[in-house]
Write a protein that binds this DNA or RNA. Structure first.
Lengths: 151, 151
DNA sequence: ATCTAATAGTTTGATATGGAATAATAGGCG
DNA sequence: CGCCTATTATTCCATATCAAACTATTAGAT
């Protein structure tokens, strides 16, 4: 194979780190999924929306999108399905008629209240391989990485 | 809001860590994407396949799937598009006729050789906010998290 | 040799995802 | 007030993703 790219030690480490970062996320997610914390009728995206509404009250779509790291285009579809399932309602905002506040229905509220502890427990379990100290350190470094900065 | 879930300190930290983990990945990915390291015609998935082939030579689909963290079902679609674009070929394995080895074409090989350095550079830049020490520490902890273990 | 279990890849269906275009509305400014 | 620009949500399109069902093939057991 032709050598087209020579890398420094640091470059190698960084590329390796990037792969580890992705792998660790999918690994954690697989562990979470393996505990089946969600009821049949909910997908992870749907859960994320319900959770945001549960903890913050009614929210317009673009706020939800930002919270759950999704595009608004995408969210329309997710919320459509939640509406069909009777778990949320779209309530037109009185002040700004572009806005439709997304609101939990009674049924949605009960479902997320019942489901959240399971998911939280699955997440905690999936990360339980780390010591308290590692959790703190990881938290500190990821915070830097997750901060938006100019390139 | 009704309190349905009381958490310990550690639980709070872990849930917070999980969010940070996801955010940092999408944040890093956004920074990578913002440098536009890929040519028009390539998606990230396609790039990942080409990269694997470039560094490992021809591979059967299920091996590629494992390397790039994708399902084989999904990969069929990605590779279909690469075949259409003339960047890879499906070559039936002589020994095991279930297997089709995926092989770079001349064009695919040239494209990935030209593209890889851009992507590598974008990744390195996106993580350049971390110090060498933080990279090592993060690498160590993520390795633990990425390891498959019983739940 | 034949039967059975495992493996490789494809197909299908549902959901997810981002980007671009569109429509409706809001809010600022002359 | 009326125009201009930004914001919000929707729609559409291509790609991505997983799971499950399915086909072909191989390998192991008897």
């Amino acid at each position: 194979m032709k050598r087209v790219w020579e890398s420094t030690e640091r470059e190698k480490k960084v590329l390796d780190l990037y792969i580890k970062l992705r792998r660790s996320v999918s690994s954690v997610e697989r562990r979470i999924a393996s505990k089946n914390p969600l009821p049949e009728r909910l997908t992870m995206s749907q859960f994320a929306v319900l959770e945001a509404l549960f903890f913050h009250g009614p929210l317009p779509q673009h706020v939800i999108a930002e919270k759950i790291l999704s595009s608004t285009g995408n969210l329309t579809f997710v919320i459509d399905n939640l509406v069909k399932a009777g778990l949320v309602k779209r309530v037109p905002d009185e002040r700004d008629r572009r806005i439709k506040n997304i609101q939990l229905t009674q049924e949605g509220s009960e479902l997320i209240a019942k489901t959240f502890p399971n998911v939280a427990d699955a997440i905690v379990t999936s990360i339980s391989v780390l010591t308290d100290q590692e959790i703190d350190e990881l938290s500190r470094i990821l915070k830097i990485l997750g901060t938006e900065q100019r390139n």
